[in-house]
Amino acid sequence: MTDPDSFGSDNQVIAYEVAGNGPPLLLLHGFPQTRAMWRPIVSALSQDFTIVTADLRGYGASSKPATPPEMSFRLMAQDMVSLMDSLGHARFHVAGHDRGARAAHRMALDHPDAVSSLTVMDIVPTEHLLTHMTTDIAKAYYHWLFLAQPEPFPETMIGHDPDAFFERCLLGFGKASLDDFDADLLTEYRTAWRDPDCIRAMCHDYRAAIEVDWHHDTQDLARKVACPALVLYGKDGAMAQLLDVPATWVDRLSDMRHTAIEGGHFFPDQSPIATHNALRQFLMSL
């Protein structure tokens, strides 16, 4: 485990690491992981890019906001734009998985001058998911509704056995087993998600999605991300089984490419080489 650097943004502290040389590429993790998820592909990507991996506010070694509005994707995006600017990167590529992808999408809308390209991994747009929630989607992604319940109900339930809940999340979104996750990375995830403040902040993340982000995204339905964009998704993931993932992005991205990767929602852990190859091919083509 590497000790991160830290950066102050909007009264929050963001933990991050930097590796490699070349055009800057920001990698953002999702729920319930940390920046450590990118470790299996950082060494290969860092041969061509300056890689910045960061913990989203509320996650990992970053600080833990106390209220749901502080966990909006707009503020997560602003954290990362400020971080990258502090490192001398006024413009950069960004790729995100899960919650990190949602923050990256918001970043491309709010800060188009900063984002050279956008890669989103295994998500459909937040507005689309919430507006078109079906019984099957609600069953597969029940955690969206559970975590958004008023404090402290989900926090109390999860706190009785964080490993049981969050490991079930790792396995529950399409074709995964614990063996798909590096043992050292699992140890880091467990350390993070056993923190009561982290549990609370992750619940606030999902509360904010419904209470804040849905409104932001609805306001921006007429806008498209202008930069080149790549949509990656798990071939066997819950979203791919329930929806045409690329089709949900057609009206949101002006210049879109898409690829299915072997695995489920956590395909970067299951298929790191394929994930690296698809991301690198896209970025090197720009």
Rank of each mutant, 00 (worst) to 15 (best):
F92L: 11
F173A: 05
R39H: 12
L83A: 05
A238V: 04
T67S: 04
M157K: 14
Q12D: 10
P150E: 03
G30E: 10
H97A: 09
H265D: 04
D98A: 01
L28T: 04
L109T: 05
F165I: 10
T187M: 01
P154Q: 14
I273S: 04
D251F: 09
A183L: 11
Q281R: 10
Y142D: 14
D236T: 09
A148I: 02
L118K: 01
D184P: 05
D5G: 11
L186S: 05
P152L: 13
H216D: 15
A36S: 13
D195L: 09
V18P: 01
P65L: 07
R39W: 09
R74L: 14
F146V: 08
T131L: 15
A240G: 11
A54G: 08
Q47V: 04
P150D: 10
D5L: 15
A201K: 07
D179W: 00
Q12F: 00
P246G: 07
A114P: 04
A222D: 14
M202F: 02
D85S: 15
M157P: 00
A238D: 11
E262H: 04
L26F: 10
A208I: 03
T275N: 06
G234H: 05
T259H: 09
H258A: 14
K64E: 07
P152A: 11
R74H: 10
G159W: 11
P112Q: 13
D220M: 14
Y189S: 03
D79I: 03
S43W: 00
C169T: 09
S117K: 12
D98Q: 06
I210H: 11
S63F: 04
C169M: 15
R200M: 01
G234P: 00
P162H: 07
T119H: 06
D220T: 06
V18Y: 02
D85W: 08
T191N: 12
I137T: 13
S72E: 02
Y16F: 15
V231F: 05
M121E: 10
Q47E: 14
G30V: 06
A104F: 08
I41H: 02
P272E: 09
Y141A: 06
M133L: 15
D3H: 10
Q47T: 08
C198Y: 05
F73H: 13
L130N: 07
L170D: 07
V115N: 02
F49M: 05
P23N: 13
Y189E: 06
A101M: 07
T2G: 02
G100E: 03
T135L: 14
D163M: 12
R194P: 04
I261N: 01
P246E: 04
A247C: 09
P68L: 06
T187L: 05
T259A: 10
D182Q: 11
R91F: 00
R57E: 02
T131I: 08
G237W: 13
V120I: 13
D236Q: 15
L83T: 02
R257G: 01
L83P: 01
I261P: 00
L26C: 10
V212M: 08
G159M: 12
L253P: 08
D122V: 02
D205H: 06
T248G: 05
A44R: 14
I210G: 09
K235H: 11
D182M: 13
D179A: 15
H215Q: 14
S9G: 02
F92R: 07
L87H: 07
V120T: 12
P154E: 10
S254Y: 01
T156V: 08
S63K: 03
R35F: 12
L87S: 10
D244A: 10
V13T: 04
L45A: 04
E155S: 07
P112L: 13
M80K: 05
